[in-house]
């Protein structure tokens, strides 16, 4: 028996979420498909954004899917890693910028 919460095979079952709630599931997949179509951003640019967010969300399914998607679109490994650094920089920046709250509190309480 598989005792891991994550199973790579589950990625292929993503579409089956509509089985328990068809209407909302269908709406989600319509939306998802539209989001990734060519628009003012190319599908390639969107794929790189998705890869970066997949890392900040730490979603193994999404990392699997968008690494594969990027390779198919000719994205280089250097481009992929730069995208992940963008995500990481925002993630760490988001943590650090909150330190202004800490500083404000320290200054108020401790002079």
């Amino acid at each position: 028996m598989n005792n891991s919460y994550y199973d790579p095979k589950d990625l292929k079952k993503f579409g089956s979420i509509t089985e328990f709630q068809k209407e909302l599931g269908d709406k989600f997949f319509d939306y998802y498909t539209s989001v990734f179509e060519e628009g003012n951003l190319t599908a390639r640019e969107k794929s790189l954004i998705a890869l970066a967010v997949a890392h900040t969300e730490q979603c193994p399914y999404c990392i699997d899917a968008y690494t594969q998607d990027g390779l198919q679109r000719g994205v280089t490994r250097e481009e992929m890693m730069e995208a992940v650094h963008v995500g990481a920089a925002i993630k760490s920046g988001a943590a650090l910028v909150h330190s202004t709250m800490m500083m404000k509190k320290v200054n108020k309480l401790d002079g």
Partner: peptide, 20 residues
Amino acid sequence: VYNPSGAFMPSNQSDLERDF
């Protein structure tokens, strides 16, 4: 002619042509 560098399929031909 483009063929993928590894164990994955090519993406959309016209998108790849544009990028190339």
